[in-house]
Design a protein around this nucleic acid. Structure first.
Lengths: 144, 144
DNA sequence: TTTATTTCGGATAATTTTATCCTATTTATA
DNA sequence: TATAAATAGGATAAAATTATCCGAAATAAA
């Protein structure tokens, strides 16, 4: 579904959100430990999230990654996914055709339509805030 | 969504089905041309479909790949996907957790539930026959 | 201003996926 | 039985993804 990079990116963003609500910046090291991901690779993905203005980074002592508290509710899963994996997951063709739409569909186009629309809707309507809350409430988990 | 191998496998199976209805066996070369895929790689994927009893191969002169006509209606997309990509697409965790279920969910588990269930249902209820018919009717296409 | 801390970013390596090539094996037919 | 036509399968290669390492740049605080 998502690439590993994207999975790490989503989990990292959630963890940063949780800490930003507590006014704490977090390091790639702390993030990687918490979400169970390779640290250096996670750091690369964080750079990508920074470039896409999803998280903010502060260099130097007492620095780290953070998200402006007022933004956490506005950030949608779709933004993170798009920043890392692009939008092929809900805009691409299920069978890899370059051009695939109503007028020139692949054999599974119609079958996938609802699923892809639902996926897109879900990603565009799920906020980082929701996900952070469920972790904080102990209702969901980063690691198995 | 699917791997390239799986995309090729699905398209190949559809093309074989169409030809099997006409009592024609097809070669990896003909398949690759029709579905726009690399021939040798496609041949590997065909072997996998043969091993999973989804298509039948006949070696030697006048040989090729075929599917028993009476089976075409019974073969579901889920069988092809499972043979090539496994079932992680609808049984795996959206964030890559080894163990992720109702009692120990990842942050997006609930959000993905309906989507994955719908995907699973669709794959399990879409037959090769349907897809072959839509191609034959000129209602869908293998290439862009 | 120096030092310690921290992210940034380039280089590289490992792994997986995708793709190619070549030979062995099988089989129908002449 | 010999031959031509096919698939099977092993060995590689290429490309993409995942992962690691290290020095440069930035920054807060002593």
């Amino acid at each position: 579904m998502f690439s590993k990079a994207c999975e790490y990116g989503i989990k990292a963003a959630i963890f940063i959100a949780i800490n930003s609500y507590e006014n704490r910046r977090v390091s790639p090291k702390a993030i990687a430990q918490e979400i169970n991901s390779p640290q250096a690779f996670t750091a690369k993905i964080l750079q990508e999230l920074v470039r896409n203005n999803i998280v903010n980074s502060v260099k130097g002592a007492y620095g780290g990654f953070e998200i402006e508290q007022t933004n956490i509710k506005n950030i949608k899963l779709s933004q993170i996914v798009k920043a890392i994996d692009g939008d092929k997951i809900y805009n691409g063709c299920g069978l890899g055709l370059e051009k695939c739409d109503e007028t020139h569909p692949c054999p599974v186009h119609d079958k996938f339509k609802d699923i892809r629309d639902n996926l897109k809707y879900m990603l565009e309507h799920t906020s980082l805030d929701e996900l952070a809350m469920s972790i904080q409430a102990g209702e969901s988990f980063f690691k198995t």
